[in-house]
Design a protein around this nucleic acid. Structure first.
Lengths: 121, 121
DNA sequence: CTAGTTGTTCTATGTCAATGCGAACAACCT
DNA sequence: AGGTTGTTCGCATTGACATAGAACAACTAG
């Protein structure tokens, strides 16, 4: 998977990393059993502090996505993600939703707020 | 519209108010020309500081949703929102998207991340 | 014109998250 | 045994968030 980080973004750096892993997992770019780069290594290449990367890793562990062990690194948990599943249905539904929202003149704030509400229930 | 605030939520208080206005506007519960409660008044009833409410109001003004004038209060801008439009199409598309995402086993993080990505492009 | 209302602006304070930095430590691998 | 890697401390800095109080200016209503 591809790692990127935008220090200018409003979203915290660690949260950006967390979201990227979730997304890569959903897209099958990351599969269970796969090992992620070492925290220090990733931190260096992203020009970010080690603790920031570790913060993201620990968050992902709490999410049940990663398994962390000293000396071994960060490994994607077996059964995590949707690897192998077909996401085309989701992609189509997403495209339809975005089109509908834009067609109705909804702002991005209103659109994301609607989704959050729907996910709550 | 209904005003609520949850101090325990992760989302900032002012952001909660902003989201509520956006949502109410999208749902037609708030119409252009309508006047919002005075900042001090709303702050008192919500047991929140005046500056917090004002922060939300000013954010909404920056979003092009509100018009603020001293002595007159906060009024919804003419042409703001989707008042009068039919949101049933959006609601259905949203429901379909949420169903598809859940059916695919996507986490809420992955789902919201997907939407953000889609809204960017 | 007067008094009340309401947003605007200013200063100040305290808390907390995020990030960065350094160091020691424990489990794991080769 | 030695290197790798996550774990756990401590500490400092920055900024957002929220609260608080006060004075001020524009508007409304009487």
């Amino acid at each position: 998977m591809l790692w990127t980080v935008d220090p200018a973004a409003e979203e915290p750096l660690y949260a950006q990393l967390v979201a990227q892993v979730h997304l890569a997992l959903a897209r099958g770019e990351l599969t269970p059993g796969e090992r992620l780069p070492a925290a220090r290594e990733l931190a260096t290449s992203l020009e970010v502090n080690v603790h920031t990367v570790l913060h993201a890793y620990q968050q992902l562990r709490d999410d049940g996505v990663l398994e962390l062990r000293r000396g071994r690194g960060a490994v994607v948990v077996q059964g995590a993600g949707t690897a192998g599943r077909d996401l085309s249905v989701v992609e189509r539904a997403l495209a339809a939703f975005v089109d509908a929202a834009r067609g109705a003149g909804l702002s991005t704030e209103a659109t994301t707020t609607l989704l959050k509400e729907a996910l709550k229930g």
